[in-house]
Design a protein around this nucleic acid. Structure first.
Length: 593
RNA sequence: GGGGGCGUAGUUCAGCACGGUCAGAACGUUGGCCUGUCACGCCAAAGGUCGCGGGUUCAAGUCCCGUCGUCCCCGCCA
């Protein structure tokens, strides 16, 4: 074998011309021509063609090569004749004349094809792929995904290292974290009846590390949440978790922007514009009906000022909203929308040509004046647009219309990747049962401009009924999300370091001092010994990688993912455990319902 | 917890709405031939309890009920 100077199949080139080399790999395909045998030998770097001539190989007749056998060969790299060059593969100018060949191991016939050509127009059932994940990962596409993931994470580590960050590992056997999801529990054998919780995030530990003066911490951290799965949600997932001292949120934004710019450039040659657009939470909800707008489609839903733009419809009793798109939409699609139940007026302008139901309710000149005054970078060409107007309906309807146009690919994205900061999330949300709970987590700092409001509401909380409690949701926090293509890919905040404020928050969310101390006492205690102001963020790496690689689900960028019911089809986890093991843990199972 | 899709040779699928020559195709696999192929070609062959269980019917891949698996979505979760 040869570790030193190993030559990879996909890298055979002129450097090795006429040299005797040793190659290892899998039989990707073979073509037996009778007296001559061509083998495409594959490793993770690619394919090279081997030529096995019966004149060179003594045991030619006994060779019973089959696909996916593992071979070791020794041979001479040759230039292929001009008319025999295969331009489809990087090594296509060369081939290896085999002098020695040995089959290191045989392979059964694969349960599904992995050759890219065989694969082109078919997608194998994912159940099968997951059961035979070891074969699935041989596919160049899957290897590419894992390779990219590796490189991205390595570059992130390098970048943060250069910026004085320290990677610190925090425990997996842990206590419940304040993220609000269900915990995975691990029974303690030594202390029967007690449980560890697997961390939903390293949140508490990283704040402790700030008290410890680590100052800049990060971790490529496994996070675990016992909630239902989705295409972009796994019970265990990987976050880039980081925390910094003596910073404000702007520092976090700049750091992440700089990091992503550098990392995406070096890993995929992608140039992204920084700084990313920053949008107030309120604005996002107001204009895009979402706290994670997809600004590849930068068309807000806006209120029409009917003082300035008259709409002569008698039945307008409520706000009028409009959506303007810088392109024309044909009649058929508009009819389609209308027939699927959306009620709207519309106007399509194409040069001096105006069409649509809105036409007879407006004064065209006035309306054009209004459109021309819209400050909308997407509306450069104001002679080509479609406007939808609705009234007496929630503006969500207009957003749904936009979504239908996107789904039907009538509206096309204006770019491939759009990063966005959504800033100043509310500090609290109101639960259905009337409780106030943290929108992010209870250590999120209040926005300085809203601190007085918080104190005022807090002082009057006893007088509030449930409807008045909703006033709490108007308090802004120093929490922010990073959004990529309409997907939340990161979340963070500036934390509370003022004990009085922290007490207030616990009190508002209904946590008694006792409960707070039992859950987070160690953190609160540490804050008594000199806590620096700090904040941070966690980026969902699986999601980011999945979006960048444009895979259908995050499963395609995770080596061994779980199915929607939380199973690993490769290992058959989760599985039952024996009586003995349960007994040792002091656990008795209830009968299955 | 709820809604929806899918489940037929090793694989990808057709067949199901209208029950009865419907056990089919392609690729793959196996055997044979072939010294320049590269998705090699040619000849031949094997291969399916139609996810599982029950029901309706003279008759069930096909209709009904249940169940299991998987995928997508809502709830939940950043």
């Amino acid at each position: 074998m040869s570790y030193e100077g190993r030559i990879w199949c996909g890298t055979v080139n002129s450097r090795y011309l006429n040299q005797k080399i040793e190659l290892f790999g899998w039989v990707n395909r073979f073509r037996d021509m009778g007296g001559i045998l061509f083998i495409d030998l594959r490793d993770r770097t690619g394919i090279v063609q081997l030529v096995v001539d019966q004149n060179n190989i003594s045991n030619f007749q006994e060779l019973r090569i089959s696909n996916e056998d593992v071979l070791k060969i020794v041979g001479i790299v040759r230039q292929r004749p001009k008319d025999k060059i295969n331009i489809k593969i990087p090594t296509g100018e060369y081939e290896v004349e085999v002098h020695e060949i040995s089959v290191l191991s045989k392979s059964l016939t694969l349960p599904f094809p992995i050759n890219e050509e065989d694969y082109k127009d078919v997608s194998v059932d994912e159940t099968l792929r997951l059961k035979y994940r070891f074969i699935d990962l041989r596919r160049p596409k899957m290897f590419k995904n894992l390779y990219f993931r590796h490189k991205l994470i390595k570059k992130i580590r390098d970048f943060l290292d250069e910026n004085e960050f320290l990677e610190v590992e925090t425990p997996i056997l842990s206590n419940p974290t304040p993220e609000g999801a269900r915990d995975f529990l691990v029974p303690s054998r030594i202390q029967k009846g007690k449980f560890y919780a697997l961390p939903q995030s390293p949140q508490l530990y990283k704040q402790i590390l700030m008290v410890s003066g680590i100052d800049r911490y990060f971790q490529i951290a496994k996070c675990l949440r016992d909630e239902d799965l989705r295409a972009d949600r796994q019970p265990e997932f990987t976050q880039l978790d980081l925390e910094m001292s003596f910073i404000n949120y702007n520092d976090v934004f700049c750091l992440i922007e700089k990091m992503l710019k550098e990392v995406l450039l070096t890993t995929m040659g992608l140039e992204i514009k920084v700084p990313f657009l920053r949008m107030e939470y309120k604005e996002a909800i107001d204009q895009y009906i979402s706290d994670k707008p997809d600004l590849r489609f930068p068309y807000p839903i806006r209120k029409l000022d009917i003082e300035k733009v008259q709409i002569n419809v008698e039945s307008v009793t409520n706000d009028v909203y409009f959506l303007i798109i810088p392109q024309t939409i044909n009649r058929k699609e508009i009819d389609n929308l209308y027939n699927s139940g959306y009620k709207f007026l519309y106007l399509v302008r194409e040069g001096e040509n105006y069409k649509g139901t809105l036409l007879k309710y407006i004064q065209l000149e006035q309306f054009n004046g209004f459109v021309n005054n819209l400050e909308d970078p997407e509306l450069k060409n104001k002679e080509l647009y479609t406007v939808f107007v609705i009234f007496n309906q929630p503006k969500v309807k207009l957003n749904e219309i936009k979504q239908v146009l996107i789904d039907r690919k009538i509206l096309l994205p204006t770019c491939s990747f759009y990063f966005l900061w959504v800033n100043n999330f509310p500090l609290f949300k109101l639960e259905e049962d009337g409780r106030i709970s943290p929108e992010h987590h209870p250590f999120t700092n209040v926005h300085p401009e809203d601190k007085d409001l918080l104190i005022e509401l807090y002082n009057n909380i006893d007088k509030f009924d449930s409807t008045m409690k909703s006033r709490f949701t108007s308090i802004r926090s120093l929490a922010y999300d990073l959004v990529l293509n309409g997907v939340e890919v990161g979340s963070g905040s500036i934390r509370i370091t003022d004990p009085e404020l922290q007490k207030m928050i616990f009190s508002i969310i209904g946590l008694t001092e006792e409960e707070a101390n039992s859950r987070f006492g160690f953190l609160l205690n540490s804050f008594k010994y000199g806590v620096p102001p700090h904040g941070g963020i966690a980026l969902g790496l699986d999601r980011i990688i999945s979006i960048l690689l444009m895979t259908n689900s995050i499963r395609d960028v995770i080596a061994f993912p779980k199915t929607q019911s939380g199973s690993c089809l490769l290992t058959n986890s989760p599985s039952g455990v024996g009586e003995e093991q349960l007994k040792e843990l002091g656990i008795e199972l209830l009968p299955l319902a």
